[in-house]
């Protein structure tokens, strides 16, 4: 199925021609500069991306929705020691294997980032 040559506007995202869009983007950029910057994106904190690999099982920002342990807002030293122990002891559980994916430096970054996350009660699963 091929789309027709004319595209009709959608109310959801107001499609516009490319030339018009570029023009609008530039104009907006100028306007934003005049209004002293809309750019608020901070540099990603160290360890954030690495630690986010824990979130599939331990919840977004380390707050598990049930079952597995929440890992946010704990002592960085304790977390690092625990991860290091898991990565070196004889593997039994899945975490002993998971922890082996990372270098000690990476484990330290993960532990430090997780410790920086606010400790909060786990949320319940909405279903």
């Amino acid at each position: 199925m091929n789309p027709p040559s004319r595209f009709s506007p959608s109310p959801a995202a107001a499609p516009i021609s490319h030339a018009r869009r570029r023009s609008l983007v530039r104009e907006f950029a100028i306007a934003a500069a005049v209004l002293a910057s809309l750019s608020t994106q901070a540099a990603p904190p160290p360890g954030q991306l690495l630690a986010s690999q824990c979130f599939q099982c331990h919840g977004t920002n380390g707050r598990a929705v049930g079952g597995f342990e929440s890992i946010n807002g704990k002592s960085a030293d304790d977390m690092y020691k625990k991860l290091l122990e898991m990565s070196t002891r004889r593997p039994e559980g899945i975490m002993d294997v998971q922890a082996r994916a990372y270098t000690p430096i990476q484990l330290k970054l993960i532990a430090t980032y997780l410790a920086s996350l606010p400790a909060q009660a786990a949320t319940s699963v909405q279903r």
Binding site: F55, Q56, C57, H58, G59, T60, A64, V65, G66, G67, F68, V125
Partner: peptide, 10 residues
């Protein structure tokens, strides 16, 4: 099931 709940939510 705990894994599924968490990966669904994340």
């Amino acid at each position: 099931f705990q894994w599924a709940d968490n990966i669904f939510a994340d």
